[in-house]
Design a protein around this nucleic acid. Sequence first.
DNA 1: TTGTGAAGTGAGTAATCACTCATTTTTTTG
DNA 2: CAAAAAAATGAGTGATTACTCACTTCACAA
Lengths: 217, 217
Amino acid sequence: MDQKNFMDEFMKAANQDLTPKQAKILQAAVEIFAEKGYAATSTSEIAKRAGVAEGTIFRHYKTKKDLLISIVSPIIIEFAVPLFAERFINEVFQDQRLDDFEDLLRKIIRNRYQFVKNNVPLLKIFFQEMAFHAEIQEKFSAVFTEKVLPQFIKVVNHFKQNGQIGDFPTETVIRLTINAIVGFFITRFLVMPDYPWDDEKEMEYTIQFIRNGLKGI
Amino acid sequence: MDQKNFMDEFMKAANQDLTPKQAKILQAAVEIFAEKGYAATSTSEIAKRAGVAEGTIFRHYKTKKDLLISIVSPIIIEFAVPLFAERFINEVFQDQRLDDFEDLLRKIIRNRYQFVKNNVPLLKIFFQEMAFHAEIQEKFSAVFTEKVLPQFIKVVNHFKQNGQIGDFPTETVIRLTINAIVGFFITRFLVMPDYPWDDEKEMEYTIQFIRNGLKGI
DNA sequence: TTGTGAAGTGAGTAATCACTCATTTTTTTG
DNA sequence: CAAAAAAATGAGTGATTACTCACTTCACAA
């Protein structure tokens, strides 16, 4: 995916030029997809909950799958990109206050925590349907390898050089870090959303776990 | 996947003799459920791949959902339980060679690695369908809280007392540990199965990551 | 006011769905 | 071997599916 397509997606996501009925359709689809899964959801049920005729769905979305893609695409970009925009990463190398791995971890986790908390159903749909739809996999893969990975590598190598991260391969550091962070969110919001979490504490423990786990001996 | 291992798992768990056609049905259902998901799979397609009449499926399984539960139930027990059988855990407190957190981690990860490798489609179905079927959630919850959690708590407290695990809450230690291990398996076998993994090295890095991450400073 | 295109409608359609059941085939048993 | 039981069959069922299309309603510019 090239830059232009990418920005198109982003603009499409940011734009609010949806008709009221179209917005209702998206809202209903997200709710039901998250509840029962894409394949188990019928377009008639979406139309019913959206308070819309079934034909209206197909006026805006060529197929049911098109509706799914329209829902999932923005969330891929919004979840992965913002914290890894070039502007932000450059700060890491220039701003004294960011030259600490633990502080960076804290900043990333706290920022993404708010985003995840505000988008649980959308993210549930993403994780579920990624397993079965090549379009979603490809879109995610493109965003990850083009936008996230290069910046992540820069940062890890930076902290490896100044000794805050130990002698692991860079890809392994990235795997372990993303897994610890995303794993926390999945446990917190999808696996055990009703557990009496103390989010502040758990985030801090997770930060310590990652920092110590990656520290050289 | 090795078909022999695969059917062995079923025989063991079901503790019941299957007719050849019934075995074919299970095998076909596992394959297609893993490929396209439970809801997107039709019973006619299962029958076709199994080389069986559609009615034969319903002679052995009351409903399509019944077939799913019959597939998923054994895997829950076999994944969670074996390493936490009382006999094994008692060894941890008696056997000198097991009185090292790192060695225990290594033993657990290596054992479960083989199991996961031999049961990828089954585990994929489990993770996917757990999100939507209360029966599966309840079965898993029961096995986890009755069989796994109590043993895990014992072990963690043991290693906290002798200083190998630092001052985290026990539940947090368990969350971080399971997340690191299961996360590795999911990344390795579901998210990026085609990446040129060096499994030995990645397991060792994961062990170091957990051990250092949980170590008190 | 009127013309025009977009938005919205809902009855209609062919295909497919999970599941049934009367019947046939295979296996077990006495 | 014959009778009984179990396993397997596949055509048939009503319900539901994603999607279509001829039509109506709407917003708005000329």
